[in-house]
Design a protein around this nucleic acid. Structure first.
Length: 819
RNA sequence: GUCGGAGUGGCGGAAUAUGGUAGACGCGCUAGGUUGAGGGCCUAGUCCUCGCAAGAGGGUGGGGGUUCAAAUCCCCCCUCCGACACCA
């Protein structure tokens, strides 16, 4: 068999097409309002510019690019933008280490990543490129801050904040992992600080409710967000201070245990604590505790474990039975949750139980389990399961937890409490005491307080001549020229706020900016946003399941309430790619096991890198690089396959022979299958189907038959995965003048997706006894007859009595015998 | 502990939405061919046990159930992974 022995040379093919595509403006979104094509917004989570791209980017963007290209071939006007999340701590830390400016470091990395993306052949609309650290971008981040401020959604308060002693900055709750700083791993301490917050808690219920719209999100992400918001239903109950007559509210999810309250606990930061301690004559000890907390704050872990506490010397009155119980102050009660004070029910709450044992307080059982009888003396842990209410006045004998509702109704009727809902979600702390971020556009005036910088004075430029080494306060505070300004209202001397905005604010609206990236009169052109949003497909790592995705959802709802956007959810369809790991462990600089994609691209080509990553396994699963890496300089299996495709398509193009019916059927079946797989992001399965088609094409050509149509279909289907090879084959082998990436996605004829010969399976009592090749299209009677003629089936049926025959045309007959 | 997800060859994984040939496709491995050698490329084989073969038996974490038929649906259990975890 004579074959054209042309060799597949990615290093010659790929650079050529990069230039041609750019010259042809192939990937520019038209965004012409008169363009009547449907629009599709394919969005990838934008990268952080630390060094060159890593393997995780390679996988994620290969998937995102496949979707964008597929949608374009389907006739959509596709918006597939790229930009950089370019503000942030790592730039600053790296800059300090290397003695260069964060700006220089950042832009150098952005350029390197852009170069790598280009070499990979990503179908980005480069004309929309943006960086969050460009003044033209952060001007609008500041503008949005101002709008939030005006609406009361941005505010400053003093509260216990997460302080990272290493990075010398506060962190959002979401940036603390297991009590340590997400970035550097240092143990985070709680410190009272005055900070800026966004009032995301106002949107807690809507963030929860609107998850109904997110039917195309992975279940685990929805669950994580639900847990993070942490809605709890319960009741607010009002207690009175016996000694002072003041009232204090508590939130409880267990109003059915109210009769079991034996003491009461305030968080140390609770505003009533000083006056109560003074009234109770315990201020000296309490003050010592508060001061110690301030000087050596507890870590999350310490706070979680301590059961220390001080009796305040005052008592609260239990509204359900008039009992006076002692009040304590203890760090295990958090000011940030509920009301900052709790009614303690040691018999039925483990924390209260431990505190009671530590401080020798009574334990009173008010829920008895059905089986054994609880004895307060012998209990070793709180009883929190179902049971029957006892010692509970009018409610004795009621079943708990069903009784929660009746008790709550009764409290409400008696005006001693009411049903209420509490959320775990806290307001979003957005100020940072670091340099490389957008300055908060606020001026502090001695007469007018916090004054927002007028829009026409934005951006508040980040000065470059700053000593940006961390020092406990914002580096900007040391820049005299930045700090001193005038009050926008009275023109008197005033100072600028010297904190910078959390970079998660930058990334909470970048997807809107992409719709009109050069817009000069606002953060975005509402018409352009209306044309493109919401995003058609959002692709990125699951590490953003809470932070970025929750914040972006919040931003979108605020913008919706401001009338700037017409939708409430930005990303109805979300796809999370898995992590790329190495030998079972995550890649990291400290482990020195980072693999970068560019050496693979240099050695074997971008198409190989893409197909390798997408074929390695399900997109959402982790990929262990050790298991798929080519050994030494051996040719990767993927490259071999692409080489066989190359040769087969050239051979098919050169052949005048007729294509067989069987190959045509495989062709149509493959078009159908790959289309379905792309809709469901099953790239690995799609590629396996392309391999089947290319194997059959090769076999057909070797047998002297033709395969031009199959080769065309194969090339079109290959385009989302291996865009360079597909282009080379489309234009050079198959001789089309236009790009394969502008060709219409192939269609299939349902009548041709079935095989012409199929395997009839003959079973006896569900066990396969024979397989017979038959013409497809045989009806039930025909296949039953064929099955009855099977020698193997007859042998298995010998000596048994036939009970019934199950016939499922066209491919199964099951003979069921009597038992 | 709570909430999610997942357990299939030596390996990555198909088949699960829609119950109907388990192991597609690929990696690796074995044998052979081509080549000065290596790489590359090509051909064949590759779930386990018995058998020369035809074939038979077993097999999708474990146990039970539904069904003519279960990797797939239902119940219980085990293991692994992930998130959250004094949230009152």
């Amino acid at each position: 068999m004579a074959r054209i022995m042309a060799r597949y040379e990615p290093s010659e093919i790929e650079p050529k097409w990069i230039e041609r595509w750019e010259a042809e403006g192939l990937y520019r979104a038209s965004d012409d309002p008169r363009d009547d094509r449907p629009r599709f917004y394919a969005l990838d989570m934008f990268p952080y510019p630390s060094g060159d791209l890593h393997m995780g980017h390679a996988e994620a963007f290969s998937g995102g690019d496949a979707v964008a290209r597929y949608k374009a071939m389907q006739g959509n006007d596709v918006l597939h933008p790229i930009g950089w999340d370019a503000f942030g701590l790592p730039a600053e830390n790296a800059a300090i280490k290397r003695g260069i400016h964060p700006k220089e470091w950042t832009y150098a990395n952005v350029e390197q990543q852009a170069t790598s993306f280009r070499r990979m052949g990503m179908s980005f609309d480069w004309s929309r490129r943006l960086n969050t650290c460009d003044p033209e971008y952060y001007r609008w981040t500041q503008w949005l801050f101002s709008r939030f401020f005006e609406r009361g959604l941005a505010y400053r308060k003093t509260a216990a904040a997460n302080w990272c002693p290493h990075d010398q900055t506060v962190l959002a709750n979401e940036q603390v992992k297991d009590g340590t700083c997400e970035r550097c791993g240092s143990v985070v301490v709680r410190k009272d600080l005055t900070q800026w917050f966004f009032r995301i808690t106002d949107y807690a219920q809507r963030l929860l409710d609107d998850m109904d719209q997110l039917t195309e999100w992975p279940e685990r992400v929805l669950t994580m967000q639900r847990n993070w918001i942490g809605r709890s239903e319960g009741a607010t109950v009002t207690f009175e201070i016996a000694e002072t007559g003041n009232t204090v509210e508590v939130f409880t999810t267990r109003p059915d245990t109210l009769w079991g309250v034996t003491f009461f606990v305030f968080a140390p930061e609770h505003p009533m604590v000083p006056e109560l301690a003074k009234a109770g004559g315990t201020w000296d000890q309490v003050e010592a505790l508060l001061n110690r907390q301030q000087v050596t704050p507890l870590t999350d872990k310490e706070q979680a474990e301590t059961r220390e506490g001080i009796a305040l010397g005052v008592h609260v009155v239990n509204p359900v039975n008039g009992e006076k119980v002692p009040a304590f102050v203890a760090p295990y009660v958090l000011m940030e949750y509920g009301t900052g004070a709790v009614m303690a029910v040691p018999a039925h709450d483990q924390r209260d139980f431990e505190f009671a044992r530590e401080h020798d307080l009574p334990v009173r059982i008010v829920i008895q389990p059905g089986s054994e009888h609880l004895d307060p003396q012998e209990m070793t842990e709180a009883f929190a399961a179902e049971g029957v209410m006892v010692n509970s006045g009018p409610f004795d004998g009621e079943r708990s937890p069903q009784s929660i509702a009746t008790v709550t109704a009764w409290l409400q009727q008696q005006a001693r409490g009411e049903a209420s809902v509490s959320y775990r979600l806290r307001d979003w702390l957005i100020s940072r005491q670091r340099y490389w971020g957008a300055p908060i556009p606020i001026v502090h005036c001695p007469d007018h307080g916090e004054v927002v910088v007028p829009d026409d004075q934005l951006p508040v430029l980040l000065p470059e001549d700053v000593d940006f080494r961390p020092g406990g306060q914002s580096p900007l505070a040391r820049h005299e020229g930045f700090v001193h300004t005038t009050c926008p209202i009275c023109k008197g001397p005033a100072t600028r706020d010297t904190d910078t905005i959390d970079t998660f604010v930058d990334s909470s609206w970048y997807f809107l900016r992409y719709c009109s990236p050069r817009e000069a009169s606002g953060p975005f052109d509402p018409d352009a946003v209306a044309r493109w949003m919401p995003v058609g497909q959002y692709t990125g790592g699951v590490e953003h399941a809470i932070l970025h995705l929750l914040y972006s959802r919040f931003f979108t709802k605020v913008l919706h309430d401001m009338g700037l956007v017409g939708f409430t959810e930005p990303f109805p369809r979300l796809m999370n790619q898995g992590q790329v790991i190495f030998d079972g462990a995550s890649m990291s600089k400290t482990k020195g096991n980072i693999v970068e994609p560019m050496p693979i691209v240099q050695a074997w080509g971008a198409d190989t890198m893409r197909v390798m990553m997408l074929f390695a396994g399900p997109f959402e699963d982790d990929i262990d690089w050790k298991l798929i890496a080519p050994e030494g300089d051996r040719r990767p299996g993927v490259t071999s396959w692409l080489g066989r495709v190359y040769a087969a398509v050239f051979d098919a193009a050169a052949s005048d022979a007729e294509q067989s019916g069987a190959l045509t059927r495989t062709q149509h079946r493959t078009v159908q299958g790959v289309t379905e797989d792309l809709e469901r992001f099953r790239f690995n399965v799609a590629i396996s189907k392309l391999q089947v088609l290319s194997n059959e094409l090769r076999a057909a050509l070797d047998a002297g038959a033709g395969g031009r149509q199959a080769a065309e279909a194969l090339t079109l289907l290959l385009a989302p995965f291996a865009p360079f090879l597909a282009e080379e084959l489309w234009r050079e082998a198959l001789d089309h003048p236009e790009s394969v990436h502008r060709a219409p996605w192939p269609s299939f004829d349902p009548a041709l997706t079935t095989r012409d010969r199929i395997t009839l399976v003959v079973q006896v009592d569900g066990k396969v006894r024979d397989r017979i090749e038959i013409e497809s299209g045989a009806d039930e009677t025909a296949i039953e007859q064929i099955a009855r003629a099977s020698e193997n089936a007859r042998r298995a049926l010998e000596g048994r009595e036939l009970a019934k025959v199950i016939v499922r045309a066209p491919k199964l007959v099951n003979f069921v015998t009597k038992r």
